[in-house]
């Protein structure tokens, strides 16, 4: 597919490759993972198809036709490997990564075993860092880019209802307050669009490097969203390098159980998974239900 023919900055690429389940699952497994451009594609795809198998995946930092990632369409390859539908949203065109005919893009992917009814890109109006100034030499080491941070939004059909899934990547080269402004745009986006009671998931790499709880996370809690790792104790960092919690899954009008951080060394971020049920099913699902999967509530999967 030739990306030049599409308005790749404003429209996500949506492909249906999956064999949709005859009976929708009663429990959704949701994953978020910053895959560090997907340069270790084989290992990432193996993990996503195996121990990290989920129904909804939010990936960040996925390359499409970049030289550094082998000039491959990674979203398509991962989706084919998993046998799922997907939406890819462009965060940046990588100006120093052209390897072949197609535009080198970098962005977020939502992969789904359930039908993706609609997808769109919420490009943040507030972009505190300029990645692509005209003065910047087109050298790969300087990472010149065109575009901006965004959230990829997909409306997923689940058992006759709609689940709204935001895959967000907030600016890394900015302050806590700057990232809160971007998260504020996510909230401003969803409130007028989705009626109260609509199940919403906001997942992604929020780049929350602060020692204290970040302003972006406080905004989500203030808007009645629940962190899926709320009840987990201990060290919850998702970045082995910074030892900070950069990655999150928040839900509203849904119940989360058995959330886990998986300390895999494939990327510079650890993936998080969580089991999601409709809010009114919450009391009928006990944490013991997940014990059979060999995972402990709030713990880390050492596989």
């Amino acid at each position: 597919m030739k990306t030049q023919c599409r308005d790749y900055m404003h429209e996500p690429l949506v492909r249906s490759l999956g064999r949709l389940p005859a009976d929708p699952p009663q429990v959704l497994t949701v994953l978020t993972w910053n895959v560090e451009r997907g340069t270790k594609f084989e290992a990432i795809a193996e993990a996503l198809a195996g121990p990290l198998r989920a129904d909804l995946y939010a990936l960040q930092e996925v390359d499409r036709y970049t030289r550094r990632s082998g000039d491959q369409d990674l979203p398509e390859k991962i989706a084919r490997k998993l046998g799922v539908d997907y939406a890819f949203g462009t965060e940046f065109e990588e100006l120093a990564q052209r390897g072949g005919f197609d535009l080198p893009l970098h962005g977020q992917v939502i992969l789904s075993r359930l039908p993706i009814r609609r997808a769109r890109i919420l490009r943040f109006q507030y972009q505190p860092h300029n990645w692509g100034g005209w003065w910047k030499p087109r050298l790969a080491c300087l990472q010149p880019r065109r575009g901006g941070r965004m959230a990829l939004v997909a409306e997923i059909e689940w058992d006759g209802a709609t689940v709204v899934f935001y895959d967000a990547h907030l600016e890394s080269q900015a302050s806590d307050h700057d990232r809160a402004r971007q998260m504020g745009e996510v909230l401003h986006d969803l409130w007028p669009r989705y009626a109260p009671g609509t199940p919403i998931i906001i997942a992604g790499d929020f780049n929350t490097k602060e020692e204290h709880e970040s302003a972006a996370v406080r905004l989500l809690r203030a808007a009645a969203f629940d962190d899926v790792l709320e009840r987990a104790g201990g060290d919850l960092h998702t970045s082995p390098k910074s030892r900070r919690r950069l990655d999150w899954i928040f839900v509203r009008d849904l119940a989360a159980h058995g959330a886990l951080i998986h300390p895999l060394s494939i990327s510079d971020h650890y993936p998080i998974t969580a089991k999601i049920t409709p809010a009114h099913h919450a009391e009928s699902v006990t944490d013991g239900a997940w014990a059979g999967q060999g995972r402990s509530e709030g713990g880390r999967n050492e596989s």
């Binding site: 307050h177 700057d178 809160a180 998260m183 409130w191 007028p192 109260p196 905004l219 203030a222 808007a223």
Partner: peptide, 19 residues
């Protein structure tokens, strides 16, 4: 303000990223 604070209290609606 329900369209901008559905489910959450209006005083916490973010304005420039701050309630």
């Amino acid at each position: 303000m329900q369209p901008l604070s559905a489910g959450g209290p209006k005083p916490l609606a973010p304005v420039c990223g701050t309630p």
